[in-house]
Design a protein around this nucleic acid. Structure first.
Lengths: 160, 160
DNA sequence: CAGTATCCCAAGCGATACTG
DNA sequence: CAGTATCGCTTGGGATACTG
């Protein structure tokens, strides 16, 4: 730990950083609030005031975030009606939004491991079996893959 | 406080949002740049100027982000020395930082699916087998779990 | 090469009040 | 209940210049 490293230390990213999918996803939902709003929707909280209450987000910002989530297609509005009241809108995840679940679970698992002292506030379970659900990196053959066994390969962009 | 619950559209989060691990992780690395810096480190880019060049981040902000990542323990500095030059610092992921890999992969996979027209700029492969690596939600018994089969269970309930 | 130090602007945000 | 509208403030962050 005190010896200067002998391995090559200089290396540029193997891919144009501007074309990386991580950059794109962050541009879509990488602001301070969107992920939290998505979490609420995943938890089943669908109404404006409930989300606002849970998150402590200001109303104007929530309006903006929900509109944006709908615009990019990860959430959709759905009409509902309380008896004796007029029709209102609620918000639900689309399939495209559900596909962000691994990101949410990844954030949750890291926080569980490093921030909550082995006492996770929420656990994810499979509905039928009651078994705990975890995120795993696996190869196409189904084997678990350790992070250090993973290499990145840049693909040549198709030109059209 | 009781409600006429004809339609189950209203629901509060089953957990105190302030205690959610997602909130905590976002507080740690949820800003505009940290995840991208982590991506660089995962790609093996370790030097200040290389990261700055790749991301187009300003020098003062990069200084701040790297210091913060070191402070929270997801990155560490490591001395290295070019022949005939003085010892300098480079940055590497710690184990705690490597544990954020599923988050990066989750962001990447979503971008690959919805933003890059089925033409992912980068693929992740297992070093030995060359097989593609993907993120999966599985139960403890090892079975794949569909997102809609997942339920959340709060372990510490806060009544308000 | 790897940072610091300043300056300054604009986005993001909360608070508050208002509306259909 | 589900938003809009307005108003400042705060802070993130880029530009630039400087340093060991």
């Amino acid at each position: 730990m005190s010896q200067p490293s002998q391995v090559p230390t200089t290396r540029r990213a193997a891919v144009d950083p501007k074309e990386c999918s991580i950059t794109g996803t962050l541009a879509a939902i990488g602001d301070r609030w969107s992920v939290l709003v998505l979490r609420e929707l995943f938890y089943g909280v669908r109404r404006f005031n409930d989300i606002q209450h849970d998150l402590g987000i200001s109303r104007s910002v929530l309006t903006d975030r929900l509109a944006r989530l709908v615009e990019i297609g990860v959430a959709r509005t759905e009409p509902y009606q309380e008896p004796g009241d007029r029709v209102r809108q609620q918000y639900r995840l689309t399939r495209k939004g559900v596909r962000l679940l691994p990101v949410l679970v990844g954030l949750m698992e890291w926080g569980d491991e490093f921030l909550s002292n082995g006492d996770p506030p929420v656990v994810l379970e499979e509905r039928d079996s009651g078994e705990q659900v975890r995120l795993e990196l696996r190869s196409t053959s189904g084997a678990l893959v350790a992070p250090h066994q993973i290499v990145t390969r840049a693909r040549r962009r198709r030109v059209d």
